[in-house]
Simulated scan of single mutants.
Amino acid sequence: MLQKLRTAITCEYRLLLGAIGTLLLLWGFGALAGEMIEGETGAYDSKIELALRHSDNLAVPVGPAFLKTAMIDLTALGSETILTLVTVLAIAFLLLRKRQNQALLVAAAVGGGALLSGLLKSQFSRARPEIVPHLVPVHSASFPSGHAMNSAIVYLTIAVLIARSYEDARTRNFIVGLAVIATGVIGFSRVYLGVHWPSDVAAGWLVGGAWASLMGLVAVTLQRRRKIEQPARPSSDTEQARP
């Protein structure tokens, strides 16, 4: 009984922290969007973009030659094709493990996130940066970064669901940490390649992280509900005592 009480308290504590974290991320996105609309982010955005290019030739990014190729390869991890493939593989894996609810949650999270990304881009309609030449082709609006937002949604949501299968805190932190690093690298690559302002990427991280956090809260809530609705199994002593 005491162990169940401790588990319930821990679960409530995690739900509270998750809700607070989600609200803080949404608040950060709203504040950043307001600054962007008022033009307050322009100076910082331009300074960072120019710092990543050679001053005598803005078409050449800083760093060794292989870094440009590496960034082009890494930015593809946040493309629609790769994210769709990762999502399909994750759903197939969860279905194979007979985790239909988690598979449905991943599908809803990714599909809903893609719709949200499109709505936000059309709402703000920010132009792509033209201060430096683009090193990869782009076509949609700039704010927020779809690569940063959708990679956060896909990789973080999947990582959180997988991490919940492990009791060891170090293992859970390692899995989620890999997703965070992947999302961070993808976002940086968009700025390095000159196709997004830094504030676009930051906004994508914030709203994508908030969405993934919200999906995590939904997963915890559904899991708790299933445990409550699941009838308690009789103990072995009770079963032996039956005639």
Rank of each mutant, 00 (worst) to 15 (best):
Pro61Glu: 12
Gly209Asp: 12
Asp56Val: 02
Tyr192Val: 04
Leu24Val: 15
Met36Gln: 13
Asp168Met: 01
Ile162Arg: 05
Ala19Gly: 04
Ala51Trp: 13
Leu67Met: 11
Arg14Thr: 10
Arg170Gln: 14
Leu67Trp: 12
Lys227Val: 03
Ser46Glu: 15
Ala51Lys: 08
Leu85Phe: 12
Ile20Phe: 13
Arg99Asn: 09
Leu58Thr: 11
Lys47Met: 11
Gly34Arg: 09
Phe29Gln: 14
Ile91Glu: 05
Ala148Glu: 13
Leu25Ala: 14
Leu83Arg: 01
Ala212Tyr: 07
Arg97Ile: 06
Ile91Pro: 05
Ser79Trp: 13
Thr221Phe: 13
Leu26Met: 15
Met1Gly: 13
Ser189Pro: 06
Pro133Ala: 10
Gln123Thr: 11
Leu74Ile: 13
Ala179Gly: 05
Val185Ser: 01
Leu26Ala: 13
Thr171Met: 14
Asn173Leu: 15
Leu115Pro: 04
Ala51Val: 02
Ala182Leu: 15
Ile91Lys: 06
Phe29Val: 14
Thr238Tyr: 14
Leu77Arg: 01
Thr183His: 07
Leu32Thr: 10
Ala148Trp: 12
Gln230Lys: 09
Leu96Trp: 15
Arg225Thr: 10
Ala43Ile: 09
Gly21Glu: 00
Arg233Leu: 15
Glu80Met: 04
Ala127Tyr: 08
Ile82Thr: 07
Leu85Lys: 00
His134Pro: 03
Thr221Lys: 12
Ile175Arg: 06
Ala70Thr: 09
Val154His: 09
Ser199Tyr: 03
Ile158Pro: 02
Asn101Pro: 00
Leu24Trp: 13
Asp237Thr: 10
Gly194Phe: 08
Gly21Pro: 00
Leu161Ser: 03
Arg164Val: 02
Ile72Ala: 03
Ser122Thr: 07
Ile175Val: 14
Val218Glu: 07
Trp205Leu: 09
Ala163Val: 13
Leu52Phe: 10
Ser151Thr: 14
Lys4Glu: 15
Leu15Asp: 00
Val136Lys: 01
Ser189Lys: 05
Val110Thr: 10
Phe124Asp: 01
Leu23Met: 14
Val195Gly: 04
Gln230Arg: 10
Gly187Ala: 01
Ile175Thr: 06
Tyr44Asn: 08
Tyr155Arg: 11
Leu156His: 04
Lys227Asn: 13
